[in-house]
């Protein structure tokens, strides 16, 4: 394959500034250790995104493995045209989108009685805090807030909004990078993120003011619970 000068220049640029690009180029040269290292570097970041998108830890792990597999399979055609994370999360976006479309194929039932689908039984910490009546101290806030934010995200954002938000918050991507990752225009990302943050703000506002979520969100959590066997 003949590459144009500008592509080669761009590629060299990213190779010089991004250590993950260099690692991926080692994978391209069939360096097994580099692939393992890449997996280690990205697995937690990827799992976080996947877990929020599909709300299920097991499924998130399956999808993450699929992403790494695709990364490996694409190694020969890899050309560093962006930061590695942008390319990597483009693949993740494709995998997640396909999976969410096919989700009904999964045949698992979660017996765990918590409000989020995938956290099993509440931790002792959580239970003790529930029992000790829920005062807003630093520690309690931490646990409570975490659950509230997860629930607000789950109930107020669609998948695209969630992904854009997670990439912006945790991957520190610019609008341009998110646009490349999600194959949208910068303007679309701007609008997507505005809506995502507006919705989230709306969902969390009652909590900030009163320590409680609005009735509509509470109801939706409760119906989540009731749907469980």
């Amino acid at each position: 394959m003949q590459l144009s000068d500008s592509v080669i220049k761009k590629s060299k640029h990213y190779e010089s500034i991004d250590p993950d690009v260099r690692l991926m180029l080692q994978v391209q040269s069939d360096d097994a250790g580099a692939f393992e290292e890449l997996t280690r570097r990205y697995q937690n970041r990827l799992l976080r995104v996947m877990e929020h998108l599909v709300s299920n830890r097991d499924m998130a792990e399956d999808l993450a493995q699929e992403v790494f597999l695709r990364v490996f399979r694409s190694r020969k055609s890899y050309i560093p045209g962006a930061k590695f994370s942008t390319w990597f999360f483009t693949i993740a976006n494709n995998v997640a989108s396909n999976a969410l479309r096919n989700r009904s194929r999964r045949k698992e039932i979660n017996l765990a009685p918590t409000q989020s689908e995938d956290h099993g039984v509440p931790s002792l910490e959580t239970m003790a805090k529930e029992a000790s009546a829920l005062m807003p101290t630093r520690q309690l806030d931490q646990v409570e807030l975490s659950e509230v934010v997860q629930s607000a995200m789950k109930n107020s954002l669609n998948e695209r909004q969630k992904l854009a938000l997670l990439l912006s918050k945790f991957e520190h991507m610019s609008y341009q990078e998110i646009a490349e990752t999600m194959d949208l225009t910068v303007q679309a990302i701007k609008s997507l993120l505005s809506r995502a943050r507006g919705n989230l703000k709306q969902a969390l506002e009652p909590y900030f003011q009163t320590g409680q979520l609005s009735d509509s969100y509470r109801e939706s959590f409760e119906s989540d619970d009731q749907q469980k066997p």
């Binding site: 009685p113 979520l213 619970d225």
Partner: peptide
Amino acid sequence: PGGATVWSTFGSNE
């Protein structure tokens, strides 16, 4: 049902 939601009943203001 819904037990997980009952415990966020205190606010900092209180």
